[in-house]
Design a protein around this nucleic acid. Structure first.
Lengths: 188, 188
DNA sequence: AAAGATATCATATAAAACGTTGGATAAATT
DNA sequence: AATTTATCCAACGTTTTATATGATATCTTT
């Protein structure tokens, strides 16, 4: 099973797309493996050749989303300056939401918001934590660093999710500005 | 089916407890209706007399958690003063986490964090939004009220969840203080 | 372009879990 | 104490899962 075989790439992509499509109209739990296969025009036995079950399929897809976001982070954040670093991260975060909005909205449509929250938190926690820990300014604070981190992570992510649902109401730049205003200067 | 029949109350409670117990060791998806019934010492046909499926069971339990939190909110927030109102809400929020920590940790154990996030957001959004909208101070801000709300809701909830996982590391009072420090005075 | 490798398909099958039913029993309400 | 009714038990058909096998189609390699 060389993973670069065209057939494998094709069927996996078909299964991913099928799942996301079905999630526009159905709860994830309501979706059966056979539904996914029918939608993807893939035989059921082929499905099981690649994934244990639909949960593995979903989390595999989620991981690919995470990876693409992490790549953007690594390639687009050049500044070592911590002040600018945070706004750059937020910029990339918002760009990610904008680009993947259809996917995220499909997932959110007939499912719990939280699948979305899970994805985004995971991504953010993975990479940004370290930078946060190196931040010299935060060491002076009387509030534990980890709590400051959780506070503003939660804040930014929640605004991001709100924007996802109201993406035509505000531009990316507006949201960015609001966030910059809301985050105190000592952290910016 | 009068819902105040002792037998009904008993079996429902048994099913709730069974589910929460099982979630300490298994994913919600791995848990079968028969598992819940065995754990609860309740016949499977009785289960179906009360709930459509395990999803209905879970969300019914979640609703009861939400109700208990909303009750605390309504009975314990007397102040019309908006400054003090927010800190009171946070106090009640932290007290709720502390009292229900075993339940929440069971749910979180082998499941996505986000089930928890879902619960808490739902509760908070339901009741506190209105107060937020009435807040005169916020009308002066250049930032849309809804965004300010999402920002600080996300922040507080995320700190609360962090505390749930590290409940022995900080006291309730410490967390409260940190949050008060992190929320700017104009909003307090 | 042909040969070889292998992913996919079609089909079959067993097991697991779902969801419902009807009558007997036990527990509650009045 | 009489009546109501929730629970139990056991059985049943259906759906879905998960796996296996050989034939076919597609991709890779040379």
């Amino acid at each position: 099973m060389k993973k670069d075989d065209l057939r494998i790439i094709k069927t996996k992509k078909a299964l991913y797309n099928a799942l996301i499509n079905l999630m526009k109209n159905k709860t994830f739990e309501e979706i059966k493996v056979s539904d996914i296969c029918n939608e993807a025009l893939v035989n059921r036995s082929t499905f099981y050749a690649h994934f244990e079950d639909k949960y593995t399929l979903l989390s595999s897809f989620i991981n690919s989303l995470k990876d693409s976001f992490l790549n953007e982070l690594n390639t687009n954040t050049k500044t070592s300056n911590s002040k600018e670093y945070y706004t750059e991260v937020i910029k990339i975060f918002l760009a990610h939401i904008e680009r993947e909005k259809d996917t995220y909205l499909s997932i959110a449509m007939h499912n719990r918001d939280s699948i979305l929250v899970d994805i985004i938190y995971d991504v953010i926690n993975k990479d940004i934590k370290d930078k946060f820990n190196e931040d010299e300014k935060l060491k002076e604070s009387s509030i534990p660093k980890e709590i400051i981190a959780k506070f503003f992570f939660g804040a930014v992510v929640n605004v991001g999710i709100y924007w996802l649902y109201n993406i035509d109401k505000y531009t990316k730049e507006e949201i960015l500005n609001y966030l910059i205003l809301l985050i105190p200067n000592e952290l910016k």
